[in-house]
Design a protein around this nucleic acid. Structure first.
Lengths: 190, 190
DNA sequence: AGGACAAGTTATCGATCGATAACTTTTTCG
DNA sequence: CGAAAAAGTTATCGATCGATAACTTGTCCT
């Protein structure tokens, strides 16, 4: 009588874990940390919340894992240094990149627990590497400035339901962002 | 037998309403929208959640009221235009200013309901007035750029539990922020 | 083949949340 | 004064959340 029901999928812990992680990245970056339930994520991954918790310990653990796995900044900073502003802007605003660290930061800021996790991961995975990439004694300050810009950009152009900027306004903003990033990168020691 | 118990305070709807509003501003800007309960706010105001709901209809209504009442940008933009960058930075980072629009924005971004309210209020109370203050056809784009910078600044220097920047780094960041704001303000039509 | 362990499901707990109803106390005003 | 309206309290509902326990089913290894 179960000829019409979907047969249960092959058991594969690694694949299930990966599906949960991917679903978590998508869900967290769409609805934020507090507003996303583990049942919802598990449902998107085709499993149950119980299994999710066994793999990741807790909702906070899952968030940390999702955040850590979503840090593909190397590709951006491998681009030519002379046009890194544009490259970063495009990477941040590409709709295909569902999960980006600054977006996660913006989404986590409202929840103390999530903010602590996000800050820790972001510090080690993004702020510190970029500071090293920049070089100089003021590397960390400039890295933080870039992070502020990036978080602001994704917050306003991807997250907040503001009245959408016109194409001209959007291009104005993106050009300004790229220029501001480039200025920080090109800056030499004072 | 109630000689030792505090006598109940005089009944004053306006004063109670004001206490609730102030408590809401403080609580929301410390723990965010989702993570702050109406019982907690009511407790800070010395009343009950029932009364809070009667005055503000719902938690979302209270948030909107708290946000609308926390928009003292006029004072900042009444300062001399030539040094508005510094003035804005100081206003945003002054610990006495517990509630600032960009901070509320940062805290609300993670919750869809709160983000919708915050975006609507911020658009009309801050983005639009600043756009008019700036003037020019690209006023709104430049206003949004300033909002991005401000949100990034308060997020990283007031909200996120990052490893705190050193005094030198902090001053580096503040000076950069003030310069970036000033550049947007001084910018003329291209 | 068969058992041991991993993978996955079902049921449920306890806490918390926003919201509502019903009630009591105080103030106000004719 | 006294009654009506406003101000405030107590009790509780229904839903949702993260988390745990107990159980069943599939897979793999000797």
């Amino acid at each position: 009588m179960d000829a019409l029901t979907t047969p249960p999928r092959k058991r594969d812990a690694a694949a299930t874990r990966a599906r949960i992680l991917e679903a978590a990245q998508r869900a967290f970056s769409e609805t934020g940390y507090s507003h996303t339930g583990i049942r919802e994520i598990a449902g998107m991954a085709g499993t149950s919340s119980t299994l999710l918790l066994r793999y990741f310990g807790s909702k906070a653990g899952l968030f940390e894992a999702a955040l850590t796995a979503a840090m593909p900044i190397d590709a951006v900073f491998a681009q030519p240094r002379e046009t890194i502003g544009r490259s970063l802007a495009e990477a941040l605003l590409d709709p295909a990149n569902a999960v980006r660290p600054p977006l996660m930061i913006a989404l986590a800021a409202g929840d103390p627990e999530a903010a602590t996790i996000a800050a820790k991961v972001f510090e080690s995975q993004t702020v510190a590497p970029v500071a090293k990439w920049l070089g100089g004694a003021d590397g960390r300050a400039r890295s933080l400035e870039m992070a502020m810009l990036a978080t602001g950009l994704v917050s306003y152009l991807r997250q907040l339901p503001l009245r959408p900027p016109s194409p001209d306004e959007r291009e104005h903003i993106v050009a300004w962002f790229a220029g501001a990033i480039q200025a920080i990168v090109d800056q030499t020691e004072r």
